[in-house]
């Protein structure tokens, strides 16, 4: 089993969507990086991701990894946020049939699974439809 450090190290990103932005070329990184992969600049400043975006692609997971067994089936998508950053997460609070490419979503803070490798509850973000 991992120590809790592996979990809490990621909390700024997973709970608060903290990212960073290259001061030289403007690319935004999530999770934050030490080095820009476009221009190699090491000068990056803190920023926060947009909280709305649209679905680029999605699937319904029917055969899950062990931590997610009690949740299956569930939808996972890649969302392009309004700031252009693309992230993966579950798409919830809607019927699978309503999920479409281009669907507008917002990012919400949710529990992801019950007990992680560190023996603790694991939280993060999920996507929910913008208009219901």
């Amino acid at each position: 089993m991992s120590t809790p450090a592996r979990y809490w190290r990621e909390i700024p990103q997973r709970y608060r969507l903290e990212a960073n932005k290259c001061s030289s070329c403007g690319k935004i990184f999530f999770p934050p990086r030490l080095l820009c992969n476009v221009c190699q600049s090491k000068d990056l400043e803190k920023t926060k991701l947009a909280e709305t975006g649209k679905v680029l692609t999605y699937t319904i997971i029917r055969v899950p990894p062990h931590q997610f067994v009690d949740q299956a089936p569930y939808a996972v998508g890649i969302v392009e946020l309004d700031d252009g950053v693309k992230i993966m997460g579950q798409v919830v609070d809607c019927d699978f049939e309503d999920i479409k490419i281009g669907m507008k979503v917002k990012v919400e803070f949710r529990k992801l699974f019950d007990v992680g490798e560190s023996g603790i509850l694991c939280y993060g973000y999920k996507f929910v439809p913008q208009l219901r």
Binding site: I61, P64, P65, F68, V76, M88, F113, C122, G124
Partner: peptide
């Protein structure tokens, strides 16, 4: 950032 969200 992928596995954590339940992708396979």
């Amino acid at each position: 950032y992928e596995g954590y969200h339940g992708i396979t």
